[in-house]
Each structure stands twice: as structure tokens, then as C-alpha cells.
Amino acid sequence: MIKLARTATTFAPPVMEARRWLDGITFTDDLPLLNVSQAAPVDPPPRALREFLAETALNVPDAHLYGPVLGLPELREEVATQWSKAYDGSIGAHQVAITSGCNQAFAAAITAICNEADEVILPTPWYFNHKMWLDMLGVQTIALATGPDLLPDPEAARALITDRTRAISLVTPNNPGGVEYPPTLVDAFYELARDHGIKLILDETYRDFDARSAAPHCLFSDPNWGDTLIQLYSFSKAYRLTGHRVGAMIASEPLLAEAEKFLDTVAICPNQLGQHAALWGMRNLGEWVAGERLEILDRRAAIAENFAPMAEAGWKLMGLGAYFAYLEHPFDMSSDALAQAMVRDIHVLALPGTMFNPEGAAEGAKQMRIAFANVARPDIEQLFARMSAYRP
């Protein structure tokens, strides 16, 4: 019997699949497309950063060559310094790796700790690219169901741990749910992972847009955090560097030595120009990022303020935060069919909950993600006006 190729073990990229739903549809000035499908900035970086990139491209020859596999030493040092201050912990540059985006950081972490048929626990609804990589690596995804508040239960996770479990992976602020995990919850999962000798992978891609001003957790204050914690981060959202592919992984030095084998094989080194841009952004764009955060928080507030007509139409707001609102729809149809009908009928492109849940899960059929980061207040009002009046 011929086994499936690795890529055949998982599903097609959801965002690309959703874009194909636009084929053959004509949008008009009266009813333009409202695209709330993807959580990525659509605007370029601020002009000062673009000017720095241009100067670097012209005047820094090394920016066009291979660099260290684990990233520019100066950027690693800057992350270690700023993270140590932000989390009131102790992080060294030797515990920071720069990666080609946060997805690669996750792939590197999983590859460094897992063998085929090992298990990783993911709360549902999950971030689909995490599930895709586990599928392609032959690692079993163990779904941890969440309740109406979308917060995972550490005791429910405890019941899922076996001798094959290698990690629990959390995303906070959450993608797709938007919810911000309380520090006590993050700490409980950390203690659970530590007690069982497994890793806690904490994806904090959206940390710059957390509504809380204090640190979202205190895990780095534990002098032995490296035994348990793997933190992931993306520079894409804060500095609009999506096309430059720059992320980070903070972990123990021995684990990074294993991840380095993977990183050297698939990319050799992260994008050099992108790394210089991320470093300049960290040193010079603090106030600008703070303003971006306030804009996202205002759009989050607009979601809450304008949701009443949606609630009257039977929709439920399950989660809200960072870039996302996560909804439950009121219709007697699966969310994947509903999402495609919405594109056709009301020119709204959103991702269905079926893309964030196990195949056939009843929860996924009733849920939908709204990525609102690129939708201004007036468009949020228009979005909900269309959706609340819609009857498929």
C-alpha cells in the first residue's frame, strides 16, 4: 500500500481557499467587498521604516548575503533586552532565535521536540497553520475543546496527556477567537506542562495589541523557564513587515541548537533586510506601535458598540480581542456554506469555523471568524448592517 505524501495528509491553505470564492463575482461601488478573512496588515510599513529599508539595501552589503542561521546577533540581543524588561524576567540573547516568520518558529519548535506519532494538544478553535504542520510532520493533534468563553481548561488538558504528549500549544491573544488568556490561566498551563515534563508553546503573535497594559504573564520570571516554555512571536503585525517574514522563538539554548538544524535546512537564515527593519523598528517605532495598538483597540470597541443588531438577528459574540471577533451564527446551515453564500449575496468574505476545528465538529459548523484589523469604524458598521439583515 502506498502511503500518502506528507502534504496530502492535511487540508488546503484556508486563506487561499477562501480567496478562490471571489472568482466570478462582480463587486460594485454600491456593494463593495468587505474582506474580513485575513489577519495581516494591508498597508506598507511607515515611511521612516521604508526609507531605512531603502538605505540598508543600498549601503549595507551584508544585508544581501547569508547571515547567521539563528538571526542577527543585534536583533537577538534587542529582543532579549526588551522582553526581559516587559516580562520582568531574565532572557539572554542565546535564548532567542530569529525565524522566517512566526509560522516557521512553530514548525521549528515542533520539529525539535516531536517524533512521528507523538502528540501535541491544541485548544479548539485552533490556528489552522499549526494543525497543518502537525499533520504534515505526522504528529497527532489532540483537540482540547473550549467552552462558550473560548478559554481552555487546564484540568481538561490534564486528562488528555499521555506518554506520547510532547507539548501543549496556546495562542494568546487568541487566533481565531480573539480572547486574551488571563495570567492565572497561562500560569496554570505552565505548571501543568512543567509537572508532566512537556513543553508549553506560547504563541504571542498579537501581544502588541493586547488590551492589557501589564505583562500578559510572568513565566519568564521563573529562572528555570527554559525547561518548559517556548515562546513564539511575529514582527509582521507590529511593524507591517508581513512580506519580509521575520519572527522569533524564545527557548532554551539546547532546544535552539536542535531547531537550528531545521532552520538551516529550510531557509539557511531569516530575511536579512527584514531583520534590519525589525531591529530598527524595535529601537525607533515604540510610539508608532503604541498608536497602532490604540487604533486596533478602537476597532475592537466598534465591534462591541455595533453588535446589538447582530444579537437581535441571533448572532452571538463568543470572543473579541487583538485582530479578531469570533461569532456563532443562527442559521440551519454549516458555516462553510454560509461563508460562501455571504460572499455571493452580501459581498462579505469571512472564514468559517470549519477551518478552525476538527473535521465534522458541530462547533465549527456554527462559528465564524471576523478579522477586523483592516476594517475602519464605518466599515464595521456597514459589515454588521449587511450581516444582521442577511437571511440565506
Rank of each mutant, 00 (worst) to 15 (best):
A5E: 13
R6E: 09
F11I: 07
P14W: 08
M16S: 15
R20M: 10
W21L: 11
F27Q: 07
D30H: 07
P41M: 05
P46W: 06
A48T: 05
E51A: 12
F52K: 09
A54R: 08
N59Y: 07
P61G: 07
G71K: 03
P73A: 04
R76Y: 04
S90E: 11
V96P: 06
V96Q: 08
Q104M: 12
F106V: 03
A107H: 07
D118E: 07
L122P: 04
P123S: 04
T141G: 01
A145P: 01
P176H: 10
G177Q: 02
T184H: 13
V186E: 03
D187C: 08
A193G: 10
R194H: 13
D195K: 15
K199C: 01
I201F: 07
L202D: 01
R207G: 01
A211I: 06
R212P: 01
H217C: 10
L219Q: 00
W225M: 05
W225G: 05
G226L: 03
I230F: 13
S234Q: 12
R245Q: 12
E253N: 01
V266C: 05
N284R: 14
L297I: 11
A302G: 01
E305W: 12
F307N: 07
A311R: 15
A311Y: 05
G314I: 09
K316F: 00
L317P: 07
L320I: 11
D332N: 14
L338C: 02
V343D: 00
D345P: 11
I346D: 02
P352H: 08
F356D: 00
N374S: 10
D379P: 00
I380K: 05
L383M: 05
A385E: 15
